[in-house]
């Protein structure tokens, strides 16, 4: 089994994504713009996980005000690394 995959930073306008295997799908989102964007961010994350067909995964996102493109990029990088680590 792979270790935790971590991508991104905790600098302003960035976010950090961690992925690790899990028996169920767990998503944890911690964001500085909770009130304004939490539900939106959750939708973005779920869509990408769906497209990647990842179900048994624990995802933790710590967001410092990242825009959608950054959240998508960090998550896609993490997924690619996760898949590489778990298939090879």
């Amino acid at each position: 089994m792979a270790d935790i995959i971590t991508v991104g930073t905790l600098e302003s306008s960035d976010c950090m994504v961690s992925l690790k295997p899990s028996k169920t799908l767990e998503i944890k989102i911690d964001t500085i713009v909770h009130e304004a964007f939490y539900h939106h961010i959750k939708t973005v994350v779920e869509k990408i996980l769906n497209e990647a067909e990842l179900k048994n995964i624990h995802l933790s996102l710590t967001d410092k005000g990242a825009l959608d493109y950054t959240i998508k990029a960090r998550l896609k990088t993490a997924i690619e690394r996760f898949k590489e680590a778990n298939n090879g």
């Binding site: 991508v7 991104g8 825009l67 959608d68 493109y69 950054t70 998508k72 990029a73 960090r74 896609k76 990088t77 690619e80 690394r81």
Partner: peptide, 15 residues
């Protein structure tokens, strides 16, 4: 390198 590639691509596609 992979982080930068993904970030650059997503940025240019969106903004």
């Amino acid at each position: 390198k992979d982080e930068a590639r993904f970030l650059t691509c997503e940025f240019l596609r969106a903004h």
